[in-house]
């Protein structure tokens, strides 16, 4: 039995990962600012940027799954950097010092996404200098940092779940449903670009599998997804329908929205505006270009395959939203 530390377990994926690890027979400790809400874990609370708290969290652990990050779409870049880069560095150092043997860095495909279509793409190298927004930029930097720390005795693996969603999801599902209800969810262009996503339980399984992955799989990054790309319009429509929200109907030319997004990015970055911009360039790009990945390497390296199909995931989402 191994003891695994899960950071950021109050989030949807973090909680699911802690449960998946428990189910796999591990001893699980969770670490984040709020209570993790996961039954059966040793819940340690603290800030990722606090060296003492981090030191206490890793103490006695054999492995770490690092999910905690600042994930909002906008915000001051320094704040992203402090949490996503500074926090990761601190955790890496503390883990190594505490004798942790395996470190799973949870990353994002956006670290290698430069706005072009990804069609059956491999997991490219993280490129902070080319990433499109503060989140992607700092996550790219953090991934490079983590993989550079990979060494005999302290093995590091990076896993990039692609667009994770599920019941209780405030990121993808929450935003789609909110905008649909506000009548602000247009269809960009043809709505045809193929987009792959990851149902939350599959992503959690993949992270749990990464902890136990074969030695040879470490030192590299892997994109994780359902491997079921769908036209973006179908995906958004099915999510809206599952959650009882109105379906998108207005068609807007994609280049126009990308330009508007770029403009709004600038406005929100320089002006004291509340909340999030209605659309960012990054989101506009995500919705008007294809992104799906070659999953063969990932599945072999992690010894993992998704258990919940896209259609089953949508059904579970609908069931959860009816409750």
């Amino acid at each position: 039995m191994t003891r695994v530390l899960v950071t950021g377990a109050s989030g949807m994926l973090g909680g699911a990962t802690a449960r998946a690890l428990l189910a796999a027979g591990h001893d699980v400790r969770t670490f984040q600012r709020r209570p993790s809400g996961v039954a059966g874990v040793d819940d340690v609370r603290g800030d990722l940027t606090d060296p003492a708290a981090v030191g206490a969290a890793v103490d006695g652990c054999d492995a770490v799954v690092h999910l905690a990050a600042k994930v909002t779409i906008t915000g001051p870049e320094a704040e992203f950097h402090r949490v996503n880069v500074g926090g990761t560095r601190l955790l890496l150092d503390a883990a190594r010092a505490a004798g942790v043997g395996r470190f799973v860095q949870v990353s994002s495909p956006s670290v290698a996404h430069v706005g072009r279509s990804l069609v059956g793409a491999p997991a490219g190298p993280a490129e902070p200098e080319r990433a499109r927004d503060p989140y992607a930029r700092t996550k790219a930097e953090a991934e490079l940092l983590a993989l550079a720390a990979d060494a005999p005795g302290f093995r590091v693996i990076a896993v990039r779940p692609h667009v994770v969603w599920g019941p209780g999801d405030t990121q993808l599902v929450g935003r789609i449903v909110d905008r649909a209800r506000a009548g602000r969810l247009p269809v960009l262009g043809t709505g045809a670009p193929l987009i792959d996503t990851t149902y939350v339980d599959n992503a959690a399984d993949a992270l749990a599998a990464a902890v136990a992955a074969p030695e040879g799989s470490f030192g590299a990054a892997y994109v994780v997804s359902n491997g079921e790309p769908r036209p973006v319009l179908e995906l958004v429509r099915d999510i809206c329908r599952a959650c009882g929200a109105p379906e998108p109907w207005r068609r807007v030319p994609a280049p126009l929205v990308r330009a508007a997004g770029a403009l709004l990015d600038t406005a929100w970055a320089h002006l004291p505006l509340p909340g999030e911009p209605p659309i960012t360039r990054f989101v506009a790009e995500q919705l008007s270009t294809a992104h799906w990945f070659d999953q063969r390497t990932t599945r072999e390296a992690l010894g993992w395959a998704p258990r919940v199909s896209l259609d089953e995931g949508i059904a579970r989402l609908a069931a959860a939203s009816r409750r």
């Binding site: 279509s117 069609v119 262009g189 043809t190 045809a192 670009p193 193929l194 036209p231 994609a254 008007s288 270009t289 294809a290």
Partner: peptide, 10 residues
């Protein structure tokens, strides 16, 4: 198909 499904115009 590859064109339209990657976001190029139909």
């Amino acid at each position: 198909a590859e064109g339209v499904l990657s976001g190029r115009r139909a």
